[in-house]
């Protein structure tokens, strides 16, 4: 197995686990965790392609990953803020019971 393929398969596995967490867990915070994992897997792909690509000196993949990390941090902050706000309102973070649209 080439190193690039190995990194890509690790990234695919992390992505799949993240997807599984996001789709199967009931807690809203864990769903956010799953989304973070998927973003991280994408970052690993970007950096692996940067390292094994033809033009690593252009830094494209690494820059993409660094920006993606900062965007993911913002996403986590807003997402968790929303979960906390919803919890204050409805006293639950269970996604299966988040069915009301009325405040």
């Amino acid at each position: 197995m080439t190193p690039l393929a190995a990194f890509l398969i690790v990234a695919a596995l992390v992505f799949a686990i993240g997807l599984a967490i996001a789709l199967t867990r009931r807690n809203a915070i864990l769903v956010l965790i799953g989304i973070e994992l998927m973003l991280n897997a994408a970052n690993l792909n970007l950096i692996a392609f940067w390292r094994f690509g033809p033009h690593p000196e252009l830094l494209t993949g690494m820059m993409f990953a660094i920006f993606s990390i900062s965007v993911a941090a913002a996403e986590a902050a807003v997402g968790l803020g929303l979960v906390i706000a919803y919890h204050r309102h409805a006293r639950t973070t269970d996604l299966d019971t988040m069915t009301r649209m009325k405040g």
């Binding site: 990194f7 690993l44 950096i47 940067w50 390292r51 660094i66």
Partner: peptide, 11 residues
């Protein structure tokens, strides 16, 4: 650590 393994120290 995987990023470090890929020589992407900063990332």
């Amino acid at each position: 650590l995987l990023y470090l393994n890929l020589e992407a120290q900063f990332a």
